[in-house]
Write a protein that binds this DNA or RNA. Sequence first.
DNA 1: TGTCCTTTGAAGATC
DNA 2: GATCTTCAAAGGACA
Length: 562
Amino acid sequence: SGGGSGSSAGAAGGGDDLGANDELIPFQDEGGEEQEPSSDSASAQRDLDEVKSSLVNESENQSSSSDSEAERRPQPARDTFQKPRDYFAEVRRPQDSAFFKGPPYPGYPFLMIPDLSSPYLSNGPLSPGGARTYLQMKWPLLDVPSSATVKDTRSPSPAHLSNKVPVVQHPHHMHPLTPLITYSNDHFSPGSPPTHLSPDIDPKTGIPRPPHPSELSPYYPLSPGAVGQIPHPLGWLVPQQGQPMYSLPPGGFRHPYPALAMNASMSSLVSSRFSPHMVAPAHPGLPTSGIPHPAIVSPIVKQEPAPPSLSPAVSAKSPVTVKKEEEKKPHVKKPLNAFMLYMKEMRAKVVAECTLKESAAINQILGRKWHNLSREEQAKYYELARKERQLHSGKKKKRKREKQLSQTQSQQQVQEAEGALASKSKKPCVQYLPPEKPCDSPASSHGSMLDSPATPSAALASPAAPAATHSEQAQPLSLTTKPETRAQLALHSAAFLSAKAAASSSGQMGSQPPLLSRPLPLGSMPTALLASPPSFPTTLHAHQALPVLQAQPLSLVTKSAH
DNA sequence: TGTCCTTTGAAGATC
DNA sequence: GATCTTCAAAGGACA
């Protein structure tokens, strides 16, 4: 029912639901005319089964109307091209709300193909030139020769892709030509194909695979000048000026994720008071957020190693015994990264919003929401994670130092004992240890630098650093080399090649299906990509990949296929 | 009871 | 330096 109302409301309805966000109406139309948030979040589960049919229907509709797509789509979206940041601030919330409430495709609140809410992906009508630009930039990362697709030569076919597939995948990205697969009727017979046949739809949840914001990443490495634009990393956790951060908006509009409801004005309010120079160094051991972070809190209990015992009984123990004792020591868990922190905070909300309980499915949702977060919002978590790493690093170094000290002292005592036993008549051989330098304090030596976001080097060292951006864009497939993912990738590549070949033969490359027609505009394109367009072969080897697509049954994307 | 799933990111290991 | 692997959280599912 929610989907039905959504489809009938149209863009104006989206504006109504969004309340004060009327200015966002132009963006509501993206990805379809039905984007009114559904008020029936409980129907998410029920609607899972409708995803497939919706996909097919959308496929038919969009593929048939792709030519008029550009005409219907509001033009202002193109303007955001020049002001990506404003776009972030303005477009973010409603689509967060639309994530559960306002499915662009009626019947399934999670279905967001492509990531219409992502300012990094789409904000303008299809322009053939833009599409080409986008594809050219994306292509090399997917330029996987059929022969190279399978590194494991033992595998007879791509259907047996192993985890060692050396595919340089655009990390977690929805392939720009995904729609060719999802919406192509050429390869899919009408009906309700299994969700697994849709490479971007998760078989379990029906959630489209999120485009990975390698486009996003370049934004996190906020330049020192840009850092001042993000809210204080801790301010988001503290109600600003008495404004409840998690309050329900008036009018009864229930934001599915109140935590994300910090609107643009609020963000600017916070950010206006934040500058890199104002970031107080995190006090070690003093959690700076309201989020309970075991990595911060628990280490006092978990991570503090027992004081090194210098008793002869211990020092006389064999290395094996010592090793065993070390293994018995409480395992120091890794600090939570930004996404984990986000997940920890948002999980309960997501679970409450939908009936899904499986963490795997929830995590998929959270992963998608993570991508949909604005850079400012993500920056908060990155900052938090950075502080956690800081604490962890400090403790780690402390432990290491203590361990070394303990070991050297043990060795010293053992040697002393051995020396005493071996040569009672000889002079005791005392091994002198180099004194620990006070300045070796890990917390002070590392923390000071990490704690000063004002320092450009520190900013670069943060997870939001441009360097990390590059690495992320070139992130190996290993992160997502699940069998189905690889198969999807193979299918993506094959389908892309197929489409490319078909388009080139018909001269229609610029008129892809609507979803494909939402190229990442250059304005929102990662600067890294823009600055250093990857070199890639201009030859697309379509003739090589086409047989792959034709020869490989689509079922290879199924889990059961492997 | 233990492992898997599923996500992203960081760290360490490996080449 | 690039690439790969592991592990953080979470809880249902499954062997």
